[in-house]
Every structure is written in C-alpha cells, then in structure tokens.
Amino acid sequence: MNPAHVTRVYAQWFRVRLRSTISWTLGLAAIVAVTAAFYPSLEGVFDDVEEGGGLSSLLGLSGDIDPSSPLGFIWTNLYANVVPWVLMAFGIALGGAAIAGDEERGTLEYLLSKPVRRGEVLVARFAGMISILAIAAVVSGVALLASAPLFDLTTAMTATAPDGSTTTNPGIDAGNVAAGTFAALAVGVGTGSTAFLLGAVLGRHGLAVGIASGFAIAGYILYTLSNVTGSLDALTWISPWRWYVEDAMFINGLDWDVALPFVLAAVCLAVGWWSFLRRDLR
C-alpha cells in the first residue's frame, strides 16, 4: 500500500464531494440550531407523554429523562432521532457513492487504469466517508454549543412536583454534546459502512443504497414496535437503536456500546476489501 496514493485519492474524493458535504453539514447544523431555538417556547408540551409506551420509545424516553429539561429536550428532539437519522442518511449516501456510485458512472475504472491498487482506493474512500461524516457531526455539535446559551439550554432547571418536592435538572455542557455527537456519529458510520460494503461487493449503487436504507429503517421499526408489543425483543439486538436509545449517551456519557458500530465498520471494510479485490468491475 502506497500512503501517497491513498492520500491523493482521499483528497481528490474529498474535493469532489465538497459541495454535498457543505450542504449536508449546514443542513444538519441548521436543524440543530432551529430545534434549540424552540426550547423556551415548548415548556409543558411533554407533560402528557407516558413513560415506557410506544411514543416514549420513539422519542427516546427511558429511565428518568425529563423531556422538559434542557438535556431531555435536546435528547428527545435531536439526539435520540434527528441527528442520528441525518447522519445515517448521509452515511448511506457516502457509502453508496464511495465505490458503487463511481463504478456505475465509469469514473472508478479510469482511476484504476492509473498506478493505484484497488485496496488503496478502497481505504481512501472508506477514510473519506468517515471523515466527511465526522465533519458533519462535529459542526452540528458546535452549532448546538453555540446556540444553547442563547435559548436557556445551559441553565439548570428546577422543577417542583405537586407534593412540593423539587428536582434540579442540569443544563447542557460540552461533555453532553461531545458524547451525544460521537454516539450519533457512530450510528452514521455503522450504517454508512453497510452501504459501503454492499457497494464494494455488488458494484450496484441503487442496490447498495436501497438495502442499507432498508436495514436502517427495519432496525428502527423493529426496535420501536418491540417496545410497544413486547415481542421479538431478542431480535432487537441487530438494531443500533436498542443500545443507542437505552444508553442515551448524550445524557449519561459514553460507554463501550459506542464501539459496536466501529467494529461493524471494520468488518465491512475487511469483507469489502476481500470481495472488491477479487471481482470484475462493472
């Protein structure tokens, strides 16, 4: 493997994808900032949400998360759903484009007529996918950190129960944002890697994106319906939502479950490598 070739192929793909990277990144940052801006006006909206039900699992509510607190609000409205979904969608777009997209357009074949190895292209594109996702995730985290003080999200909130007891919920800090952003990025990397693997094995962009999207949606449906019905619980281990929502790393901090998508990504890279180096280009 020639590191100079990997670097050049990586940089060239980065340049090619710059425009779409900016669009996705600014879009996600805008969603984060706009959602944060709603916090002061949504007090009391979540009072009727029943804990443990289907709606609460859709919102990512579990344990003692208070959706009207700063942490609970951002978790239920952004990090339990929108941020990982956007990063998953972006990951699928990048993973599908990395090998299969270029292969179908005929651009990959010309690149491989030059003195680069297939493995070098594979590694460069995989690294490109992860770093572009990381940029989108980090910028969204920075957008939250920048907008949180403007909308009282960094201020601790004291709630008084009917019996007169009080509970103090802390405001958002950089640790919450870093942990939540990293966990959401991990989900995006895992899902993008499945699209990458399918593209490397099949060489078909539509199939890679379609199957990876199907897995992502099926995993979400499986997890939420299982929470509602209580059945098929054993199968929910294949869904990233199980550990992602239950661990709520945005609130509780990182734990080792966050490594699971990266292990999946490493397996996808290894299997994709094995297949891509052996098969015919389309």
Binding site: H5, V16, R19, R105, G106, E109, Y110, P115, R118
Partner: peptide, 26 residues
Amino acid sequence: GDPNIRARVGYLPGDLNLAGNTTAHE
C-alpha cells in the same frame, strides 16, 4: 493490475467519465 506496469501504460477508454465538477486541468 500491477501499479508498476500501469505506470508505463497510457489508457484511453471508449467513454471517458470523470467525477463531479473536475476540470480538465485538475
């Protein structure tokens, strides 16, 4: 498939496709 061989070969495909907004100079 050997990069050392490909470095000595010039290839013109039947239909040249280059990625995105790549200019000829790039």
